[in-house]
Write a protein that binds this DNA or RNA. Sequence first.
DNA 1: GTCTATAATGAGATAGAC
DNA 2: GTCTATCTCATTATAGAC
Lengths: 212, 212
Amino acid sequence: MTRMSAVDRRTALVHAAVRVVARDGVSAATTRAIVAEAGMSLASFHYAFTSRDELMVELINAVVDGEESAFTPALVSLGGAPKTLHDAVRAALLDYFDGVRADPDREKAMFELTQWALREPRFEGLARRQYERYFAVAEAAVVTAAEMTGCEWSRPTAEVARMIVMLTDGLTIAWLVNRDDEAASAAIDFATSAIAQLAIPARTRTKSRTRT
Amino acid sequence: MTRMSAVDRRTALVHAAVRVVARDGVSAATTRAIVAEAGMSLASFHYAFTSRDELMVELINAVVDGEESAFTPALVSLGGAPKTLHDAVRAALLDYFDGVRADPDREKAMFELTQWALREPRFEGLARRQYERYFAVAEAAVVTAAEMTGCEWSRPTAEVARMIVMLTDGLTIAWLVNRDDEAASAAIDFATSAIAQLAIPARTRTKSRTRT
DNA sequence: GTCTATAATGAGATAGAC
DNA sequence: GTCTATCTCATTATAGAC
């Protein structure tokens, strides 16, 4: 009935698919479930996409591109009171974890999509791209945190970022399984100290003002 | 043709299913694929199990029960030269990671099984049990490492164990995605230091021999 | 361009012969 | 107890009317 351009239909289907995947999982995201969510007919799907795989590729690209920084908001909200790097890292991790708790299904879906892509050699690059994006998001936060607190990292920022992704992945999985907020809190404390350990404290640099 | 007892058939099917899941993923582990792997007819499946879900439950229990300590072998191989706790933690993590590299499909399968169980509320307890087992395995290693090096943990051993599982999960996922051995090596160094930080060094206790 | 109808395939589960 | 044959349902994809 209603006329939609092919590209509009594609994006509408991708958005519907994102909702289905988050709510019911990757395996439940059949073409039928997706078109039902989008309020379209099954034929419209195959008018917009040649195959389900083609949509999945676009879906992963969409959620990965849409991956806003989960960390920097917390850093920005600290405002003009940078405090210590330790505090900045802690605030960022707590902010990330708040996001996980606010939308656990989304996190489940992200893991599922990674593993789905990992299974088919054809889509392995997608998983890789997904994690490149995670690393980039974390690295931006890492750089910001150092600037705000006047610290320097003792390791390359890309490496620090990878450590953060490792910690947040592990934290998230464990919490998704047991929903243990206390354990998560302890984990965040641990992760904060571990990451902060990778920085040269501000006071060291302040004391020896002239550096080579 | 060949007569098998029902329990033998069940275990044979579970073992076949484990192989299929590891090789091709959870979604590929259909009843047909499983009976083909086991060399049985489809009807034999439903003679041994009332449903596929029933087999999946037994499958997860089997792989979880079979989860031998991935850490203690390395600790034992250190033998009578306990060295420092830092060295013990490092050896254990390297040993774990060697296991991941030796059989990546198995690790992929473990993550998939967790998420499969996590999707269906009916099986959520299975995922929980799976992680309880991980924690227990890690805790045993944590206790052993402290004993061997004469150190004490500054945190409860159960908490240290959870931190280790968090780190190994994050490490494993990242490596499964990008197969970056260098990054994994850096991650192991980081994880080692972070965990070792949770211990009261041996020399501290040696210096002050009488403790309250 | 969009729809209904339907092919083609594969899934889990079962009936009933032997 | 084990098998072949089949049922029922859901899937992706396509054909062809409008």
